[in-house]
Design a protein around this nucleic acid. Structure first.
Lengths: 238, 238
DNA sequence: ATGTAGCCGGTAGCATGTTACTTGCTGGAG
DNA sequence: CTCCAGCAAGTAACATGCTACCGGCTACAT
């Protein structure tokens, strides 16, 4: 006979897990400056733990391309270059547009409702000019779609890629465009998914990502040459 | 004035690096059986090193989805499930078909020559019925194309995905189809790239990957239901 | 002033010690 | 025979010890 658990077991995140999250946050918000060099020892004492979990967390982050060990020197905080940004955004287009297509085919009531919730939260954040909250719900919105595609690896990989974008310390928003415009693009995506119109969902997602990419790359490089990411975008449906 | 180096410096791969490669090989060729549980201590003594580099190597492999730590129990060798296989093959189609398109646009003499070399080696291996050598050159062939697309992250990610496929211990070849057929598919890809016909390159790559996927999934699941990976394939050009 | 040999502090990489926990086993109670 | 408490073995996670090596600094030679 199987008993229902009285209480959900607490996952007991390890010290390594917590340190990894802390370091990732610190990199994203710039407290660990791109290009700067740090020793495992100094990080460990600032967290009040031993060197081992810090080192293990850094090995993880090295695998995701956020830091790099330099033998006998320290660990370098990496900055994603313009070229990295182009690669990452191209990958997002290649993966998320088909994912939106598949998600629209298979979307259930629950996923549509969850997306609607996130969109509502984005509207509120847009009204309040709260860019940080906006970004968080934007991220969750995309994550739900990617998971609804049925390909969990795709969702996880895109999520990792987004951390790398943040490593530049840029907001997707940018000065030139306002938050309501972004909300509108997501509304189009949601509408297509709700009506199970997969072709429209793909097109809406593609438009959104191409817009975001162009804006981001122009904002970062300002010497706006030809944008190679639109050439990748030509290679997906929608 | 810059001097030419008298001798190429040897990169001095760390113990961790060598252990990681050894463990990966052992997983792929089945010496570390899928689902089996091992202690860091036992692995360390079998390699004749201390526990630290072994643990660090395993953390790397955990990030790539090949193993999983179980607290106070050991480290579990993971087997990629049928569903994992579907996800991975879908990702390869999504990424490698556009990559072939871009590679054909930008291909130089050198890349075409390198591809030709690999293809030649594949022909020899096919004639000798040497499946292992065949696979190695097949892998390198795809890697060259992916790198020629200009997106190094894409190439690196696809390479990681291929390790996961091998974790099932399957050969791409299968009993049902012969090596020369595979060579022919690659010949079509190379021909398109040599003539800078990007649309044809994408189509050839798509055909090749869809064929390989179908074969692999049928061989593994043998209860061949509808194959969801062809539904992903509909979403890319070619 | 300039170049440089050698010292020295600091570091990652690796080895080893410690701890809390999980699990299989065993033996005794019912 | 069945059940389970408690013991013992083994483990990952974490802490700490050790070492070769890198690079900046200094001070001396030219």
């Amino acid at each position: 006979m199987t008993e229902a658990p009285l209480q959900e077991i607490k996952a007991d995140p390890s010290i390594t897990d917590r340190v990894r999250d802390s370091i990732r946050e610190a990199i994203i918000d710039g407290r660990l400056a791109p290009g700067s060099l740090h020793s495992v020892q100094s990080l460990a004492s600032s967290f009040g733990v031993s060197r081992t979990p810090v080192r293990e967390a850094l090995i993880d982050l090295e695998g995701k391309g956020m830091v790099e060990f330099e033998r006998n020197r320290g660990v370098r905080i990496l900055q994603t270059s313009i070229h990295d940004l182009e690669e990452i955004l191209a990958l997002r287009i290649l993966l998320e547009v088909p994912a939106a297509h598949r998600a629209a085919e298979q979307a259930t009531e629950e996923t549509a409702a969850a997306l609607s919730d996130e969109l509502q939260a984005m509207r509120r954040a847009a009204r309040d000019r709260d860019e940080v909250t906006m970004m968080a719900h934007d991220r969750r919105f995309h994550e739900i779609i990617n998971e609804a595609s049925g390909n969990s690896r795709l969702a996880a990989y895109v999520d990792d890629l987004r951390d790398l974008i943040l490593t530049r310390g840029v907001s997707t928003v940018g000065r030139s465009r306002d938050l309501p415009a972004i909300v509108r693009e997501h509304e189009a995506i949601l509408a297509a998914i709700e009506s199970n119109d997969s072709a429209a969902a793909a097109k809406a997602m593609k438009d959104h990502l191409v817009n975001t990419s162009s804006l981001l790359l122009r904002q970062e490089s300002d010497a706006a040459g030809t944008e190679p990411n639109v050439r990748w975008a030509e290679l997906v449906i929608g």
